[in-house]
């Protein structure tokens, strides 16, 4: 479904992504982990073109993401993206946050958009907050709304960029539960996260990155029990403590 072929990216002199070759299949849940600055956020941000690449090719269902014939807005409307900082729109109510993209991009009626939004908010357990404004919600609630907002476009794939890193520990669980539910429904997911429990429970595969390169690919159990690469070993032992 998502294929990276010899992808390289530089920020000036800095080699942010170094010859990435990966394939994410339909329905697969892939966890990307690695120390900070290893390029994992950059990697998933290249998938919906928030970051351009300088070499190689990224395709989604065979379409070149950076192709000159690609309508970037249309492309992005099929890729759900969840940010570390939630990035809800603070001037719009929770329901409006979820309704906005379907109304503007898919031009659905306000009524239909509202119905979809309420279904999704119900799914993430926040239907009762529909008319609140985001700043009044806790971080965990905001992130669940952000997930609902992304799902409103009915994307076949969801990307998560450290969705729980900005949350207080006791709020992490409610967000992970929503993500687990999504995974169990067969959503294709790429998650940048350090949540070992989540990776073990739902990930099909763990990708370990450092210095812009993929150093290890393994099943979650293998990765966390028997990391092979020395840097992966150090990383796994570091996040345990």
């Amino acid at each position: 479904m998502i294929v990276f072929e010899n992808v390289d990216k530089w920020y000036g002199e800095y080699h942010a992504l170094n010859n990435i070759n990966e394939t994410v299949s339909k329905g697969e849940v892939v966890v990307v982990c690695g120390p900070s600055g290893s390029g994992k956020s950059t990697l998933i941000r290249t998938v919906n073109r928030l970051e351009p690449i300088q070499k190689g090719r990224i395709t989604i269902d065979g379409r070149d993401v950076n192709g000159s014939d690609v309508d970037v807005n249309e492309l992005r409307s099929h890729i759900g993206f969840v940010f570390q900082q939630f990035n809800l729109f603070p001037h719009l109510s929770v329901a409006r946050n979820v309704m906005l993209a379907p109304m503007r991009v898919h031009k659905v009626s306000e009524k239909t958009a509202r119905e979809t939004a309420m279904d999704l908010l119900d799914k993430v357990g926040l239907a009762h907050k529909a008319d609140e404004f985001p700043p009044r919600l806790s971080g965990g609630q905001q992130q669940r709304v952000a997930i609902a907002r992304a799902l409103a476009m009915k994307p076949p794939v969801m990307l998560f960029d450290e969705p729980t890193s900005a949350l207080d520990p006791e709020l992490v669980g409610e967000v992970l539960n929503v993500m687990k539910q999504l995974a169990s429904e067969g959503m294709t997911m790429v998650c940048v996260t350090h949540e070992m429990g989540f990776a073990r429970e739902v990930a099909d595969r763990v990708i370990f990155m450092d210095s812009g390169a993929v150093l290890e690919r393994a099943s979650p159990d293998d990765f966390f029990q028997r990391p092979q690469h020395p840097r992966a070993q150090k990383f796994v032992s570091d996040i345990r403590h």
Partner: peptide
């Protein structure tokens, strides 16, 4: 970024 990621 959030808005553009939604396809707006």
């Amino acid at each position: 970024e959030a808005s553009r990621s939604l396809g707006l």
